[in-house]
């Protein structure tokens, strides 16, 4: 008698519930935004004090952030909103001014902070300086290859970076502020 029945259909109604359960689990554990950040190449550690080679002053763009979170560019108080453009002008020196870098390959950006400096301000300044280089690379890439820097193959990227090398040196921080 029972054998005569048609095979019963599997009830798929609860499938949605099961899927919902899994869905909620993944919703909760998800962190969508992938890790992003500013890439930095640290200098190798050496126990010897750095070489006190005297650099030509015009080639150094010194940026100082003190413990009170004040920004000093080349010894004078400066506005962070202008930092990117000033850095770009310093590196390229399109007008050949005597107080800016001789040529992009000689330009050095020196960044110094205090142990009491706020981290987010430091990142903001670093970001602006990095942005200056990124924008210069983009312009240079347009000039040399007519395409965006990001689309270039690695070799061409290197060629662009050889024209405008990123030289961002960080001095040992001072120790005036409260941590």
């Amino acid at each position: 008698m029972a054998r005569k029945r048609e095979s019963p259909e599997v009830n798929a109604g609860s499938m949605a519930d099961i899927a919902f359960l899994l869905l909620i689990f993944f919703l909760v554990t998800t962190t969508i935004d992938a890790d992003k950040g500013i890439m930095v190449q640290l200098p190798p550690w050496s126990d010897e004090p750095p070489d006190p080679t005297q650099l030509n002053e015009r080639n150094v763009f010194s940026v100082l952030i003190n413990a009170n979170d004040d920004l000093l560019v080349r010894g004078e108080p400066a506005d962070i909103d202008l930092l990117r453009d000033r850095a770009k002008e310093f590196i390229l020196n399109p007008q050949g001014r005597p107080d800016l870098s001789e040529k992009p390959t000689k330009a050095i950006i020196s960044l110094k902070n205090d142990r009491g400096t706020q981290y987010d301000l430091y990142i903001e300044v670093y970001n602006e300086l990095k942005a200056a280089y990124d924008e210069l690379w983009e312009e240079q890439s347009q000039k040399m290859y007519g395409t965006s820097y990001e689309d270039l193959p690695t070799d061409n990227k290197k060629a662009v970076r050889a024209v405008i090398p990123l030289v961002l040196s960080e001095a040992e921080p001072t120790d005036f502020g409260d941590e």
Partner: peptide, 26 residues
Amino acid sequence: GVTMGIVTDVKTALRKANQLKVNYSA
């Protein structure tokens, strides 16, 4: 909100361990 002191200490430790590729998460 942290200050650079502790970040510098970490950076120094990384340099001493010869781990030079660093990414400041933002």
